[in-house]
């Protein structure tokens, strides 16, 4: 009698571990941003972004280390970390949310997705819907999506002296390639 009870239990436990393996991860994701003003263009790229999709729950998360952004001008990089992002205090920018559409991760194709969640930059959390395109491939998922960040929304102060050189709103571009976590 007892063994009969144990068998379904083992099966269910096995299913629980199955659920765990439904994670797709991106380690070298690319996030870049661009600020354009008549006076100066500023751009930076981070090629070490980590992102994750849980295909069983449609949950997503992105973690960006601020100090890994590379600028063409080293001084800008220093200012970015020291004056604007305060990277020592707020080392990471993150997004955590859930894909609102129902996606069949087993069927290859391109899906328009929108993830609703919390974007945290400079220690300030904002509820956002991030839109983009998710390509389901044979063994990998690819996400491409742009969104805008208003500096004021995240309490990133621009001194009046350089106000004309930094756009109030930046376009952030993302490109993540996910592979299944083993």
């Amino acid at each position: 009698m007892k063994t009969r009870l144990v068998i379904p239990l083992i099966i269910i436990h096995f299913m629980a571990f199955q659920a765990k393996s439904q994670l797709f991860m991106a380690q070298g994701g690319e996030t870049s941003f661009f600020s354009e003003t008549p006076l100066e263009n500023i751009s930076a790229v981070n090629k070490q972004v980590a992102a994750i999709i849980n295909t069983s729950t449609s949950e997503v998360a992105v973690r960006i280390q601020n100090i890994a952004f590379r600028f063409p001008n080293k001084l800008m990089e220093e200012h970015f970390n020291e004056n604007y992002m305060e990277s020592e205090k707020y080392p990471n920018s993150t997004f955590k949310g859930k894909i609102q559409e129902v996606i069949d991760f087993k069927k290859e194709g391109v899906y328009n997705v929108s993830a609703k969640g919390i974007l945290e930059i400079h220690g300030v959390k904002q509820e956002r819907v991030i839109k983009g395109k998710l390509t389901v491939g044979k063994e990998q998922l690819t996400f491409v999506g742009n969104f805008d960040v208003k500096l004021a929304d995240h309490k990133i102060e621009i001194p009046t002296l350089v106000m004309a050189k930094i756009a109030e709103s930046l376009t952030v571009k993302n490109y993540f390639v996910f592979t299944q976590k083993k």
């Binding site: 436990h13 994750i52 998360a61 280390q65």
Partner: peptide, 23 residues
């Protein structure tokens, strides 16, 4: 067993990233 499944699914994804992202 159901609790086990639920607990698994609720694990924070950001924590997961914390573990895997190389500093």
């Amino acid at each position: 067993s159901f609790i086990a499944i639920v607990a698994r699914a609720q694990d924070d994804l950001l924590d997961e990233l914390n573990k895997i992202q190389k500093p």
